[in-house]
């Protein structure tokens, strides 16, 4: 078995797939550079990320797959799951060998891509739901999130369309980058909040005067709209898993 090592980027993975075809590599194990385990493999092929090669693979996949099947391939990469690269390769190989490959739910790679893309999509949808903006004194709405998968690229469009008339920043505390919208464009920002949890006090001092009052009104609403006679904590937690509570205004005690 041959190790194919790429640089953790999507373009790098696409180049890796290109090289598998180019050099007719068989029996490969594609792995990101930060997870390489050389000793297990006889040979290591190090991928030199090449945008032109990546674009060719992407174009080919786009032609061979349905729109959904193509999107599922791209979104699988955002799952950051260990081992996804080989499944993505098998999916690509299957797509290049038969027509409508992404409709074959009896194929293991197709199923993996579908299911992983579904998980990523679910996380995207959750972030669209669970982002809680706080307004600062200078009118910026900012939110901190900690999604299971790297979904910021997927939620950009949604928030840009929805909050077209307010400046906002959504910051991924795990991956240490954020999206900032300045009323015209969104840009990627890498400000370091220095352990967001540690200095909530600093953030509190820059909040708009009314921010805390609206948070309290929201908490009040959240409690008042609950029907006690129908209490069902199991369902509550299934829909709002506890790992998301830390950034949810309505789950904070004030």
């Amino acid at each position: 078995m041959q190790a194919v090592v790429y640089d953790n980027t999507f373009a790098g993975l696409l180049t890796a797939i290109f090289e598998v075809y180019e050099h007719k590599l068989a029996n490969v194990n594609i792995m990101p550079a930060n997870q390489r385990q050389d000793s297990l493999f006889n040979e290591t092929f190090t991928v030199d990320t090449d945008d032109a090669k990546a674009a060719r693979v992407l174009k080919g996949l786009k032609e061979r797959l349905s729109a959904d099947g193509f999107k599922a391939f791209c979104n699988t990469f955002l799952s950051e799951e260990t081992g996804m690269e080989n499944k993505m390769l098998h999916y690509a190989q299957y797509a290049f060998s038969v027509a409508n490959a992404d409709k074959d739910y009896s194929h293991p790679a197709v199923l993996y891509i579908k299911n992983t893309a579904k998980k990523v999509h679910r996380e995207k949808h959750r972030m669209e739901a669970f982002v809680r903006f706080q307004q600062t004194g200078d009118g910026l709405y900012y939110a901190i999130v900690d999604p299971d998968f790297n979904v910021l690229p997927l939620i950009e469009r949604h928030f840009k369309k929805r909050y077209a008339d307010q400046r906002w920043l959504i910051y991924d505390s795990r991956r240490k980058y954020g999206l900032y919208y300045n009323l015209d464009n969104t840009t990627i920002v890498t400000v370091d909040f220095n352990d967001a949890g540690g200095n909530t006090k600093d953030i509190a001092t820059v909040l708009d005067d009314k921010e805390v009052l609206y948070q309290q009104l929201w908490q009040n609403y959240f409690a008042s709209t609950n029907i006690k006679a129908r209490k069902n904590m199991k369902l509550h937690i299934r829909h709002m898993p506890k790992r998301y509570w830390k950034y949810l205004t309505e789950k904070q005690l004030m």
């Binding site: 669970f130 929805r162 609950n226 209490k231 369902l235 709002m240």
Partner: peptide
């Protein structure tokens, strides 16, 4: 949202929270 205003109601709805009775908010 085609007037660069606030909000967008095309497409899917979103449940932003769930109360302790498990109902969507």
């Amino acid at each position: 949202n085609d007037n660069k205003g606030l909000g967008n109601a095309e497409g899917m709805g979103i449940c932003h929270a769930y109360t302790e009775d498990g109902r969507c908010v």
